[in-house]
Simulated scan of single mutants.
Amino acid sequence: MDIRQRLSKKSNKFLEDLNAYLFAKGKNFKEIDVIIEELEVHLLEAERKGKPIEKVVGNSPGEYMEMISEEMPVDYSNWIKYAVIIILGSFTFQIFMDILNGPLSYSILEIVGDVTISILFILLTLVSFTWITKRGMSDRKAILVLTPVMIVPVAMFVGLIYLNRHVETPVIHFGVTSSWLIVSLASILVIAITLWAKSWVLVVILSLLILPEFLLGLTSLSIETQLIVSTIISYGGIFLYIWIVSRREK
């Protein structure tokens, strides 16, 4: 039987929080795994002897997490890689949606804004995970904290769209051939991320965002109806997919 299955719910919660905390602090994945495996053994031995988790991690789990984090170096190369993937990933969503309306064109304001918002999203997420895990919050409280983190970047992207309409900056126009070359490169990136992450999440979400709008555009429905129906299908489908994946993970 796996060690995790023999540990108490409280010990498992602490290990999950520690894992997420060290991840948010930019530590190396392999080193995190080593730390977690060692703690699993110590916690199991303590529980067998009837000792509480505090005998291993002290009275303040948050301070214990911080102490371990300070002893581990930050893996900057890994985090630069993830930051680049997230930023490029945000561009792929925009590219696939924009190509439906013809050749691509982007203003300098759009490009700089997308990169800035993506970096802000990464920082907000890391800070939030650090804060949540250090305090050992329940899933419900964690969701309450993370909800604004998800909403703020979306609101900023919407604001960027309106700002771009009223503030003129140089625009980079791509021809038909160049546009489809960019789409091809974006497709390769999506496939590479999917294979690397061993997850279909990105492909499914992209499909749900793009296909409904494209397919409804082939119908005789009014633009307003197409917009309403595609929005319901897209976001309803994304919610359903995430719910199904979460249930399966549980």
Rank of each mutant, 00 (worst) to 15 (best):
M1L: 07
D2V: 13
D2Q: 14
R6H: 10
K9M: 12
K9A: 14
K10E: 15
N12H: 07
F23K: 10
K25R: 15
K25Y: 08
N28T: 02
N28V: 05
K30D: 13
D33W: 06
D33G: 07
L39Q: 14
L43H: 08
E47P: 08
R48S: 12
E54V: 07
K55F: 06
G58T: 05
E63V: 07
E66R: 15
S69W: 02
E70A: 09
E71S: 14
M72N: 07
P73G: 14
V74I: 15
V74D: 12
D75Q: 11
D75G: 11
Y76G: 00
S77M: 01
N78Y: 03
I80H: 03
I80T: 07
Y82S: 01
Y82I: 05
L88A: 14
G89Y: 06
F91M: 09
T92E: 07
F93A: 11
Q94P: 02
I95D: 04
I95T: 12
F96R: 05
I99A: 07
P103E: 04
Y106C: 02
L109D: 01
L109N: 01
V112D: 00
G113P: 00
D114V: 09
V115D: 02
V115R: 01
T116M: 09
S118N: 02
S118L: 00
I119L: 10
I119N: 00
L120M: 14
L120N: 01
I122D: 01
I122F: 03
I122A: 03
L124Q: 06
T125H: 03
T125W: 09
W131T: 01
I143V: 14
L146G: 11
T147Y: 05
V149R: 07
V154E: 11
A155K: 03
A155H: 07
V158N: 09
I161M: 12
Y162R: 10
N164Q: 06
R165G: 06
F174E: 04
G175A: 06
S179H: 07
S179N: 07
V183F: 02
L189K: 00
L189I: 08
A192E: 12
I193G: 01
T194D: 12
L195I: 15
V201K: 14
V201C: 03
L202D: 00
V203N: 01
V204Q: 00
I210S: 04
L211M: 15
F214L: 15
L215Q: 02
L216Q: 03
G217R: 10
T219E: 09
S220T: 15
S222Y: 12
I223C: 01
E224S: 15
L227H: 05
L227D: 05
L227V: 04
V229Y: 04
S230C: 05
I233W: 05
S234P: 13
G236F: 12
G237F: 03
Y241E: 00
I242E: 10
V245D: 06
V245M: 14
K250T: 10
K250H: 14
